[in-house]
Design a protein around this nucleic acid. Structure first.
Lengths: 211, 211
DNA sequence: AGCTTTCGCTACGACCCGTAGCGTAATACC
DNA sequence: GGTATTACGCTACGGGTCGTAGCGAAAGCT
């Protein structure tokens, strides 16, 4: 997960408990201090380990925070809710709930910002966060094709392009809504979003919000 | 634009040339160093001003970078290209071109990350960057309604929600494509994106990419 | 046992931060 | 032209964080 996993097999093994404590302390520090004021010395103190232990496992702040934030996305699931629209609404609400947590907001965006100048960090984010989310898109799309809700795309290259497009549209909209617009991606918004995604902008709303 | 604009009217005025030099130096430093390694002392040296001059005008790194990045979005325009689809493709390509610049990527995302813990900074970003982009959505939508390409929404509250939704979907998709997926938002992608946005996911592609 | 690796601790030079103080330069008002 | 007022450049400073080195002790494996 972190630094070049120790090659040798003999000797005292690394403490797994220390790993968990460090990542939890990192998230705690992210909540209280945010990215810029988070220091590795402070994280070490919170975790009850020495600062040098941190540097033995992670190359720096970037890698540590990515690993700490990645764990937040472990709970993402895609239960079968009967229709494509329901599947989308369900997973988007899950994603929005994770993004609403302060440690996810500041940590993820800061890491992405740093990754624009660090190829290895970008790959780390892709492998531990982005690809995990994209798998949900692949699964949901294939499920919808079996239901006949989406057209089949025999060309694998074109199918991959479509998956990428849907992924960027879904995740991008939620992230932008949450971070840039600063408004909640609640049920009402998710309903509207899903309708536009599935039927396009030309469609008219089913009901003018009369609860 | 920056710090509490000097209240008094007498005395030596602030140098406007210094402002431009500082903002340009900030963008240059963003390109070469990225957000985390950018220091205000270095920016001051590049701009040919004293470090104290920087602190007299901006409260800190966050505010300075936001102002420096905001200027990049000044060139955004919405020329009338005849149809809603063409309008969208045009403005999205402009937006993607700006986002592709390294100073925009690292600067904007880092500022957004910091803004999750700084209400004043979030407001600054909203006023100088986000709202300027949203105006294009409002204009493009109203133009499309005049053409009859989009349904009219008489309820102003519902119209505002629709504008917000479209804005987050468009800008979010481009940002996510560029930064998270790390792939270019080129003409091919923009064509696919516009088709899905207007017609929804159920529609089939017009031609299987046969140039 | 003995070997190997991790761990906690301390200390260190290097860098950047943000501010204070001073003398000088540039404008507005009279 | 003289004067008040503000901005500017420069230097210097205490405080904080960085990332690393070195040490003795602890914890596993064979």
């Amino acid at each position: 997960m972190q630094s070049p996993t120790p090659a040798g097999r003999t000797g005292r093994p690394r403490s797994a408990a220390a790993d968990a404590a460090i990542l939890a302390a990192t998230r705690e520090a992210l909540v209280e201090l945010g990215w810029s004021k988070l220091t590795l010395g402070d994280v070490a103190t919170r975790a009850g380990v020495a600062k040098t232990t941190l540097y033995r496992r992670w190359a720096g702040k970037n890698e540590l925070v990515v690993d700490a934030v990645a764990e937040l996305f472990d709970e993402l699931e895609l239960p079968d809710r009967g229709s494509l629209a329901n599947d989308i609404e369900g997973v988007v609400l899950q994603f929005a709930a994770i993004l609403d947590r302060p440690e996810a907001k500041s940590g993820l965006m800061a890491a992405v910002a740093e990754s624009t100048r660090d190829e290895a960090l970008r790959e780390r984010i892709r492998a531990s966060i982005v690809d995990r989310q994209k798998r949900l898109v692949v699964a949901g799309r294939s499920r919808a094709q079996c239901r006949g809700e989406l057209p089949a795309e025999p060309d694998p290259e074109e199918a991959a392009r479509t998956v990428d497009l849907i992924f960027d549209m879904v995740a991008g909209a939620v992230v932008h809504r949450t971070l840039m617009s600063g408004k909640p991606a609640n049920e009402e918004w998710v309903r509207d979003f899903t309708r536009v995604l599935l039927q396009g902008l030309g469609s008219e709303p089913p009901e003018p919000t009369t609860p």
